[in-house]
Design a protein around this nucleic acid. Sequence first.
DNA 1: TACCAGGTAAAAA
DNA 2: TTTTTACATGGT
Length: 278
Amino acid sequence: MGHLPLPQPYSFELSTERFRAFGLDRANVWHDDALHRFVAGREVRIAAAPGGVEIEPWDDAIAAEALRHLGADFDLPAFYAWAAADPVLHRVASALEGFRPPLVPDPFEALVTSITAQQVSLQSAFAIRSRFVERFGTAGRVAYAFPTRERVASAAEEELVALGFSRRKAEYVVGLARAELELDALAALPDDGVKARLVELRGLGEWTADWYLARHLGRPHAWPAGDLGLRKAVRVFYGEGEDVADLGARLHPFQNLSAQYLLTGLLVVAPTAATGRA
DNA sequence: TACCAGGTAAAAA
DNA sequence: TTTTTACATGGT
């Protein structure tokens, strides 16, 4: 067991909202007031602790990956100072002080997670993805290790269809697993380069590439302008007249944090307005 | 029941 | 070149 300090401010409660809001994700299990998932190859339990989190079990590799996973690299004080000039963002950021968007540690997990969420509700996506994780992943005590690329490469598309994947998405996921592209190498490329490589693969479009930049690589300027949830959040917080692409340009250089604050704001700040009837 | 939900590729016009 | 359609599940 180890104590992992995180840059302040940090709210464990707000930062883990995503793991409770949409149903069960077998690879990121909220249980017993803690987040259970595989980090650096081992199943860990991450719980709130003064000034950060406590992690069990503990070693240097786990600590390093957990830091990144928990969003330690985001500069929240700089973001808040900058957001103070925008009344809308200031309101949302103030209500979510200490929210650090978690990053998906594994690139394959990030992409498959996005594919499962294409077009369908997050509730549906979580349900289908959990069945996939249980079928092809490795069971731990509480959580499952997300299926490896190698395991999925050897799967039959028909096996995914049986879990509720559309035939098209089953082809995307197995095709991605079997593709030549070296995912770890993408981290060395600029945003545009990452997107160009990803959208060459069947089933990975601009939306998926944007979320890869935002949720896996943690790139500051990522802005998934086509995302339905983000579009709703912009409508709710900025009003009908606001153009999502224009707003993205205006939110430079904090597009990623802005997008994630607006989306979490839908869950936490304006649950009533989020119905779209406000 | 029908419609919508954190898209994408392929067919049709 | 631009527009339309199919896709599968879960919630309402």
